[in-house]
């Protein structure tokens, strides 16, 4: 074997040896709240066709989450022919188009926590090297800390077990990108507050207000003082023409953040739509009072509109 190749391999090994820090930390700390072993049952397996690892992974995760999807249909939603591959954003967008909460994750303990909570996770890896990339999507569905393995539905192999350290190295080269899909109304175990909010907002953007309402409600169960989520819930209820529920949500937003003119402004509209004109006017006055000089104009317009409503 040429000596240069041996040296190259040695250098790579040295680089690689210190490239699975999260796994090492996880295995060292016995204090970790994670169970030693976890497995998600009932994740269907679709063997990918050529270049279709992205669509196959999406189809498996979406079907598990209650939206049956074929690999071919998934391909129409995420595959980019000119690149013979799948954009990560398209996976997220497709999940939202299917009415699912798509929440991105980016570290090993969050990934394993999702599996422990019973949710399969789509992961994005570079199975090759940075200069010979071999991009790949698959679905993580089990792990075993005692044996240091992680199990994936990957490519044409169901339940493929991989060494956890090796997995982290290839996942790190995929920027630690992962996304968990759950039905609207359920919440991933991990996932930052902002990531959860973006998931619900994504459904909102697509005017799927039934789903976004469920999404915001589930976020608020866990984070009851999240003002944007109360605003999102209010706006979604308003869009569904449930003005009483909208007013309740905006009231909560205004209670959590009394200095936020947007909450009072939207509350005014919800009251007006619910026929509570006197309350609408009062809320609009609060919006004007809370506004800054830069934003007060719009809220004064609201107040004029509310003041013109008839009061018996």
């Amino acid at each position: 074997m040429p000596i240069r190749l041996v040296l190259a391999a040695l250098a790579l090994w040295l680089l690689g040896a210190c490239a699975a820090p999260q796994t090492a930390r996880l295995l060292e700390s016995n204090a970790s709240a994670l169970p030693r072993f976890a497995q998600v049952g009932g994740v269907p397996f679709y063997a990918q066709t050529d270049n279709y690892c992205g669509p196959a992974a999406l189809a498996m995760a979406a079907t598990w989450a209650g939206v049956p999807l074929t690999q071919e249909r998934a391909g129409e939603m995420v595959f980019t022919p000119g690149k013979e591959g799948t954009l990560r954003n398209d996976v997220v967008a497709a999940a939202r188009r299917l009415g699912l909460m798509a929440v991105e994750l980016d570290d090993v303990s969050s990934l394993l926590a999702e599996v422990a909570a019973g949710h399969p996770v789509i992961v994005f890896q570079n199975l090759g090297l940075s200069w010979v990339p071999r991009w790949h999507y698959s679905v993580v569905l089990a792990y075993d800390l005692d044996h240091q393995t992680i199990v994936q539905h990957s490519g044409i192999t169901p339940d493929r077990a991989t060494d956890l350290n090796a997995f982290e190295r290839t996942w790190a080269r995929g920027d630690y990108w992962a996304v968990v899909l759950v039905p609207a109304g359920e919440l991933p175990a991990a996932g930052r507050e902002t990531a959860l909010l973006e998931a619900a907002l994504g459904l909102d953007r697509l005017h799927n207000y039934n789903a976004s309402t469920k999404g915001y409600k589930s976020i608020l169960k866990k984070f009851p003082s999240n003002t944007p989520a109360w605003m999102g819930l209010g706006n979604s209820e308003y869009a569904r023409a449930d003005f009483v529920a909208a007013a309740e949500a905006f009231e909560r937003a205004a209670t959590v953040a009394p200095g936020d003119p947007a909450a009072w402004n939207n509350l005014a509209y919800a009251y007006a739509a619910a026929g509570r004109n006197r309350d609408a006017r009062r809320a609009a006055e609060r919006a004007v009072a809370a506004a800054t000089p830069a934003t007060v104009g719009a809220y004064q317009d609201t107040l004029r509109e509310m003041a013109a409503l008839p009061i018996d």
């Binding site: 790579l12 690689g16 090759g128 010979v132 044996h147 393995t149 090796a166 290839t170």
Partner: peptide, 25 residues
């Protein structure tokens, strides 16, 4: 071929995961 050999070695070392014969335990 050289790249294939490098990837085979890195696979065996657990740095890459291109071939089906990963360091599975």
């Amino acid at each position: 071929v050289v790249v294939a050999v490098v990837l085979l070695i890195t696979d065996l070392l657990g740095i890459t995961d291109v071939y089906p014969i990963g360091p599975v335990r």
